[in-house]
């Protein structure tokens, strides 16, 4: 899933400087699961904003709404935004959601409340780790199911480099070396001979430009 975290409250307040009323919009997708932009976080942020602005002597009206997914037009269109009532929409979705809200509400000022950080998995309660950079040319079948594009600091497809030491990456001892993990797993699977196949350079042709996908079969 997509992992995000809330921006510091001061940064959010700064973006709301000119607004006296705002629609705070949460999302029940990934950001609910990672505890950054779901129902609960919307409630907490709304009250934080109100009390901070009361303290500043410039109260703000905060209306809230949580939709199923901010990355789909049909749900975004459910947002109870009105230009007369709201000076801005503060979205608690990932960056993609924020942008779809802006696209659907052509006359609204749409602001992000979160920093979208990565595509990752949960590693126990409250911990998420990055696992995929959406490179568009998945190599996991060649690397024992461990992504070197994401998890090797240099993205080496034929690692490890000479800095791999005691299972740790040369860049930071707290980061496991992806290639140590790959080699260990290949060995466990009895496939260490696969290590010697040279993995060809990645095809980045779909990566450097805005991607889109058109699937006729599900239209």
């Amino acid at each position: 899933m997509i992992v995000a975290e809330q921006k510091p409250i001061q940064a959010i307040l700064a973006t709301l400087q000119g607004a006296d009323s705002v629609l705070l919009a949460g999302c029940r997708g990934c950001v609910t699961v990672c505890g950054a932009g779901g129902e609960k976080e919307v409630r907490v942020l709304a009250s934080l904003l109100k009390s901070a602005r009361n303290e500043q002597g410039r109260p703000i009206r905060v209306d809230t709404a949580v939709v199923e997914r901010q990355c789909e037009p049909e749900f975004v269109d459910e947002l109870p935004y009105s230009r007369d009532d709201h000076d801005a929409v503060l979205s608690m979705a990932c960056g993609a959601g924020v942008q779809l809200v802006a696209e659907r509400l052509q006359d609204a000022i749409v602001l992000p409340a979160l920093d979208t950080t990565f595509i990752g998995v949960s590693e126990g309660k409250g911990t998420w780790v990055e696992r995929c950079k959406a490179c568009g040319d998945c190599k996991l079948h060649l690397t024992a199911g461990i992504c070197p594009v994401t998890r090797c600091s240099k993205g080496l497809l034929n690692g490890p480099c000479g800095g791999s030491s005691n299972g740790a990456c040369e860049v930071d001892p707290s980061i496991p070396c992806a290639w140590q993990l790959i080699v260990d797993r290949l060995e466990r699977l009895g496939m260490l001979d696969r290590y010697e196949e040279i993995i060809m350079p990645a095809d980045w042709s779909e990566y450097g430009k805005p991607s889109s996908m058109d699937r006729g079969d599900i239209k």
Binding site: C161, S164, C177, V183, E187, Y195
Partner: peptide, 20 residues
């Protein structure tokens, strides 16, 4: 080539890869 880096068991296979 770094004969002293980890994991040691692929240090020779890695050299073979460079030769290939």
């Amino acid at each position: 080539a770094n004969p002293f880096a980890d994991p040691f068991r692929i240090r020779v296979p890695r050299l073979a890869k460079k030769a290939a």
